[in-house]
Nucleic acid binder design. Structure first.
Lengths: 149, 149
DNA sequence: TAAACTACTCAAGTTACTTGATTATCAAGC
DNA sequence: GCTTGATAATCAAGTAACTTGAGTAGTTTA
């Protein structure tokens, strides 16, 4: 796997190109959210990414851990940190007293919205660079690749 | 940035799709090389990636560090590990006695070749999934994105 | 209602970095 | 020809983001 700084000169392999593009754009999402006043880290996306507008308002910690592909312990620590910063809240689950329900605070919702905007403007930039059909074609090809995996 | 296990259900954003595709395929390069008997780690690509067939036979450690976007100390440790495994050799640079010249051993060259084959068969698989022009189009779009960054 | 399983948390260990400091060597200026 | 400042590598200590192992509280099952 190529690092974020392999300055590819020769025709790099497709996988390295994917990595470079991801790294480039991924950092800019974080930058965008940080720029709007939220001291987030890249890894918070493991949580924020599971609270898209469409998703359930509360999730269990273990469910979040599974969804992010990490251990419950690692997720617990991540949730500690985000709770400390005021982005989310842990409440006991009345239906199962072992469990805690995680929900976004108002601040968390603001950060989530800032993330959505950062992504939105990067998507617009991609469309400016590739054209609308270029972007659509890119997404179509990536979907095909991901469906295979 | 999405983790390698965010199981995207809804139409994910393009950046997340790039990340998932990269993670999926990147792991398979490592798997391929490991499968041919080399106990490598993903991070070794920071070095191997700078010894493509076309590149100079020896490089300085600091040059490798810069090329990989990491500190000389981190590169030093990585080189220790790869030297220990027999993939590379450090010789004093006769033209500058502060410096050491890094070169691949025979074993290192074998691993490099195994990497090239793993990448080659993944490229072929991509072409099977997307068609030859799909793959070419993907690469063209990625090049455009990277030229912008 | 005991046995097995699950949710979370505490603790310790690992990996892959970082920054800071030290030594050896080189390159310039005077 | 020597000091002064940069550079190559390395030693050491610290940090971020995980991991596995162990323990407690609560739930489900036979």
């Amino acid at each position: 796997m190529a690092s974020s700084h392999d300055q590819g000169k020769p025709p790099a392999n497709t996988i390295a190109m994917l990595g470079q593009a991801y790294s480039l754009l991924g950092f800019r999402i974080v930058e965008g959210v940080v720029g709007s006043g939220h001291p987030i880290k890249a890894r918070y996306s493991a949580v924020f990414g599971q609270f898209d507008p469409g998703s359930a308002p509360t999730r269990r910690a273990t469910e979040l851990a599974r969804g992010a592909g990490m251990s419950p312990q690692a997720m617990g620590e991540l949730l500690d940190e985000m709770e400390e910063l005021g982005y989310l809240r842990r409440d006991g689950d009345p239906s199962d007293r072992r469990a805690k329900l995680i929900s976004m605070t108002t601040l968390g919702t603001h950060a989530l919205r800032a993330g959505g905007q950062a992504i939105g403007s990067l998507e617009a930039e991609i469309a400016r660079t590739l054209g609308d059909d270029g972007r659509a074609e890119l997404r179509r090809l990536l979907e095909l690749l991901l469906a295979e995996g």
